[in-house]
Computed example of a mutant assay.
Amino acid sequence: MPRVEAVLFDLDGTLVDSAPDLAGAANELRAEHGLPPLPYERLRPMVGTGARGMVGVAFGRAPGDEGFEELRDAFLARYEQRLLQDTAVFAAMHGVLQRLEAAPLPWGIVTNKALRFATPLVQGLDLHRRSAVLIGGDSTPHAKPHPAPLLEAARRIGVDPARCVYVGDDHRDIVAGRAAGMATLAAGWGYLGQGEAIEAWGADAVVSEPAALLHWLDLP
């Protein structure tokens, strides 16, 4: 495998724990509709699928269903109001980012979150000064699992995609990374969804905790 010259991270569930605010927005919207709150443990796995997944688990509505778009827009409006209320960088990621920067090894963020949300979130967590690039779900014509966002991130950093590794907690992250010609790591501490087991995603490796990424990169 070529020497890694840049590390790219998914945002929600990989770099930051945004589940408390996304789940909170979903339960606030349920309360508005006279419904009781859902347990956090039921909402957390679906965070990686965005508004579509949250509306799906909170209201049983899917794209194309009557009322889905209205619920999605209401959910996003509520989430925007509490974007940084409880969201934080995963505690174990702090040391990982510091070690990458000391190497030095540039790192960036590629997320399907629209820049409307991703930019203020990254700025609010003071990651914008450190990240080499931020690609949102609307930065390119296609979102993940299409490789376009990852290829654009590599282009902006100025690194060959084959010398990048992409770390994500959703199957589509691995599909996108492989399609972009990058090495891929599945983040076992993330949200993971409710589909195939993480071991079946086809990643180059499954890393159970952030520190394992440093071992994979052979960074002491």
Rank of each mutant, 00 (worst) to 15 (best):
residue 53 G to Y: 02
residue 58 A to F: 13
residue 58 A to Q: 09
residue 60 G to L: 10
residue 61 R to L: 15
residue 65 D to H: 11
residue 65 D to S: 10
residue 66 E to A: 15
residue 66 E to W: 11
residue 69 E to H: 09
residue 69 E to F: 04
residue 70 E to S: 15
residue 70 E to H: 14
residue 70 E to I: 11
residue 73 D to E: 15
residue 74 A to D: 13
residue 75 F to Y: 15
residue 77 A to H: 07
residue 77 A to V: 04
residue 77 A to Y: 01
residue 82 R to S: 02
residue 84 L to W: 00
residue 84 L to H: 03
residue 84 L to D: 08
residue 86 D to F: 01
residue 86 D to L: 00
residue 87 T to C: 01
residue 88 A to Y: 02
residue 88 A to K: 09
residue 91 A to C: 00
residue 91 A to T: 13
residue 92 A to T: 03
residue 93 M to Y: 11
residue 94 H to Y: 13
residue 95 G to Y: 08
residue 96 V to P: 05
residue 97 L to W: 03
residue 97 L to I: 08
residue 97 L to H: 04
residue 98 Q to M: 07
residue 98 Q to K: 15
residue 100 L to P: 01
residue 101 E to Q: 14
residue 102 A to E: 15
residue 102 A to P: 01
residue 104 P to R: 15
residue 104 P to T: 04
residue 104 P to N: 10
residue 105 L to S: 06
residue 106 P to N: 13
residue 108 G to W: 08
residue 109 I to L: 04
residue 109 I to H: 06
residue 113 K to V: 03
residue 114 A to L: 15
residue 114 A to W: 02
residue 116 R to M: 01
residue 118 A to E: 03
residue 119 T to A: 11
residue 120 P to S: 03
residue 120 P to F: 06
residue 125 L to H: 03
residue 126 D to F: 09
residue 128 H to G: 02
residue 128 H to F: 08
residue 130 R to Q: 12
residue 134 L to S: 06
residue 134 L to F: 10
residue 135 I to S: 04
residue 136 G to V: 03
residue 137 G to W: 06
residue 140 T to A: 14
residue 140 T to Y: 11
residue 141 P to R: 12
residue 141 P to K: 12
residue 142 H to G: 00
residue 143 A to K: 15
residue 144 K to L: 06
residue 145 P to T: 13
residue 146 H to P: 10
residue 146 H to C: 14
residue 147 P to F: 10
residue 147 P to K: 13
residue 148 A to Q: 14
residue 148 A to E: 14
residue 149 P to R: 08
residue 150 L to H: 08
residue 150 L to P: 02
residue 153 A to Q: 05
residue 155 R to M: 01
residue 155 R to N: 07
residue 156 R to H: 13
residue 157 I to E: 11
residue 158 G to I: 09
residue 158 G to P: 02
residue 161 P to D: 12
residue 161 P to F: 12
residue 165 V to W: 04
